[in-house]
Every structure is written in C-alpha cells, then in structure tokens.
Design a protein around this nucleic acid. Structure first.
Lengths: 222, 222
DNA sequence: AATTTTTCTTTGACTACTCAAAATAGTTAT
DNA sequence: ATAACTATTTTGAGTAGTCAAAGAAAAATT
C-alpha cells in the first residue's frame, strides 16, 4: 500500500506532467508539495525504488505505468469527494479542495464505488476538472482559455483551473462558475485586461492572468 | 493538531476506560492497538507530555479533560461516518467499522457538521453505539445484555458491542440487528447456551459469550 | 519468605519523512 | 574559456512511531 505521502507525490507529478513530455523537475515538484528540493530528490529515488517512477538525474522524474495508475486513482478520489462535498453536503466549492486533500487518502475503493453511484457517475467535478474513470482513463480536455478565445462568440465556462479559495470566491461572485454562458466583449493587451459579459449582465473585467485560468467551450445558445 | 496516531491512542483509551475508574493498563491498550507494550509506554508518556493523559507508572493511563475531548470527537466522527456509510451509501454494516477507522482521522469538523445534518442528527450508529454530541456529551447507556436478562419478557435489541465483521454477519443473518424484537425462551447455564425467539420466528441458539455482546431494552410490543 | 510469573519500562535500533546547508553539475553570460 | 548563476544532489541531523529484547517491579505461587 502506498502511503499518503507517496500518493501525494504521485498525484502532484501527474498534475505537473500534464501537457509536457511527462518529465517533472525537482524544483517544480518541491514547490508544488511545499517541501525543500532536497527532500524531493530523496523521495523521488524512493519512488523509483518502489517502481512508481523513473528518476532521470538532473533532468526530472517521470511516472511509470504503475505510478500513473495510483496517481489517477488518487485524483479520482479527490474529484469524486469534491463533487460529493458540493453536490450532496452543499459545501462551498472554494473550500472543498482542502477537505478532499485529506479524504483522498482515507477513502477505500469500496466506498469510492458507492459514492460514484450515489453521484450518478459524474465525469467532472464542481470546478470542471475531469474525473478519471475507475479503469484509469482521463478524458482529455482540449479547451481554450478565456484569455485567448475569439471575441463575441457565445461561450460556456467548463473549467476553472485554480483551486485557491480566493480565486474560486472571485469566480463565483462574478458568476463565472462552470456552465455559465458568457462572451468576450473586449480585449486590451496593453493594459492586460479583458472584459466579458454574461447574457443580460453587466461587463466583468478580468486580468489576462485570471482569464487564462478559466477554460471555455463554444456554446450554441447565447 | 493531534496526529492520527495520537487520536487513535486517545480513542482506544476512552473505549477501554468505560465502566472502570478510567485507568487503562498498558497491556490492554497494547492489545487493543495491536502494538507491543513497550511502544505504548513510550507513546503514553508522549501523550502525558502533550497534556492529553496522565501516566501512572506501573498502574495505567487516564485521559485528561483535553484528551477526553479529543477522544470523544474522534468517536463522534467514527460513528457518524459509520451511520453515513450504512444509511446513505448502503454499505454492509459488518464492513463499515474498518472504513470508518480511516475516515475518522481525515474528516474535518466542517464536513462532520454537514454530515450530521444530512443524517438528521442521529444519536446512535448502526450498531447501536451512542454518538457523542458535538459538545462532547455521550449518552450513558445502561442496558442489560441478552446473556443476563429475564426470560420471556419482550425485548428490543439496542446495541451490538462487537465490531468484528464475523460477529456482525452472524447477528445480521440471525435477524438480531438493533431494533429487532425478541424474547429469551431458554437458558442453560450448564451447556452455556441460551435460546431466543423473534416474534413468529424459529428459536435461535447463542452462546452466553455471544449473547453478552448484544444489549437489549424492555419492549412494550411483543 | 523465597521463587516464579506476569506486567511494565528501558534501551538500542530501524523506517519514513523532513530540513538546513554544503557540494556538485549544468547552463548562461562575459 | 572562464566566471557566475541556477538547479540538483548529498550529507548530517531531527521528529514520529515502531519493534525486539533486556531489565525492573509487582503480583501470584509455592
């Protein structure tokens, strides 16, 4: 059985390796886990020893298939728990990430299966993050960010890729949570601002940095 | 914050001290926690250091008020989680003890409060064990065991004080789960057996040892 | 009372994880 | 090509929790 610590390392490696070639630097991992780089080097070698990852000295770490399997299962637990906390327990979506961080390591596969059924087999969590299937498949999402999508087209928010309570609070009060219908009304690269409008609402101003953490899809309805 | 290990020690001390004078022997605690006695001595001194317990060398350990507060909260989490697993997730009551053992250390007070509301503020779990209140009160149950209650009186099962999956399976298939209505029909101290009957069912034979783990209350209806 | 048994405590050692700080490798700039 | 910078690795040490086995105290036997 992988310890909570090992599960955490694997989860963070998985998240950081998305998009790239799978290699994650020690520095990025240390930052993400809030430990010093030396600790990461030590642990990554232990991970490699256990067959969960391969360590390429001075280059980075990459998950093995076994490691990815564990990481995906942890991520699945995390996101299903978040969904439960929001949909069933009606908790604030800006808080559930922290809660799920603990529960993801304590929940058994048996409980997970029941929870999945109770929730109706969801494929994404309240932040729009995709939930890996029990067989370890994660639907590849290739959405465009609000920062670089065409103006004036009808859009639907599908995902918010920043789990910080502060950002999520802002998104919620702005009404930009997943499933919100919006369109980009203005874009000013000089000032680094874009403005979006909900159908029938007043314009909302966002920094480019903020808008790059909101993923959208084309929407039929305005 | 008390670690999972500390929480576990406190919980086991609380459970073992019930009924007695509050003093728990190192041996009993070691047995209950499945560690060697030397480990318990070491840990109990750390608990005392942290203000959770008082260590009386060669006699035993006793919780302080702070320790009891923590222990009751862990027990509350354990039993509310069990109730959730059975009532909401429809899990087998013989398995939920093991599951709750993990979850009791991972669930926050915020989640607990929501869970409590969802379940309708129950006062006992599926095994009939009393659930401590959020303020740390545990309803004192002074029930009689099936082993030494009067014969032929109508009884209601209120609690099963053995969490082993095997025993719970037996109780369930015998139909002696909490709220079952039964009466003692025979008692044979020589063979160590007693027989009970559910209203309209056939007699069930139990050892005295087994029947001492089933608590009952007088029942109006037969 | 002396001896045996039981229970408890101590000691030394080990695993898992962590940090601080020094050493090293790789990269970039001069 | 040398210097400087940055990222990584190594080393030494510390905390939390555990066990095995030796030693000490208390209780039970004889």
């Amino acid at each position: 059985m992988a310890s909570s610590t090992v599960e955490n390392y694997l989860k963070h490696i998985l998240l950081l390796s998305e998009g790239g070639d799978g290699l994650v630097s020690m520095g990025a991992l240390a930052e993400s886990l809030a430990v010093v780089p030396g600790t990461v080097t030590t642990m990554v070698k232990a991970l490699a020893e256990g067959g969960f990852a391969r360590h390429h000295p001075r280059q980075g770490v990459k998950l093995t298939d076994a490691g990815r399997r564990v990481a995906l299962n942890v991520l699945r637990k995390h996101r299903l728990v978040e969904t439960f906390l929001v949909n069933v327990l009606k908790m604030d979506w800006s808080q559930v990430n922290t809660e799920a961080e603990q529960l993801e390591h304590a929940i058994s596969d048996a409980v997970l299966a029941r929870l999945d059924a109770l929730l109706g087999y969801p494929t994404s969590d309240p932040h729009g993050d995709p939930i890996p299937s029990s067989s370890g498949q994660m639907p590849a999402q290739v959405y465009v960010t609000l920062a670089n999508c065409p103006a004036d087209k009808p859009l639907r928010v599908v995902r918010v890729t920043d789990q910080s309570a502060e950002f999520l609070k802002f998104v919620e009060t702005s009404g930009l949570s997943p499933d919100a219908h919006v369109r980009v009304t203005g874009r000013n690269p000089a000032s680094g601002l874009i403005t979006v409008k909900k159908s029938g609402g007043r314009p909302i101003a966002l920094s480019l940095a903020a808008s790059s953490r909101i993923l959208v899809a084309p929407s039929r309805s305005a």
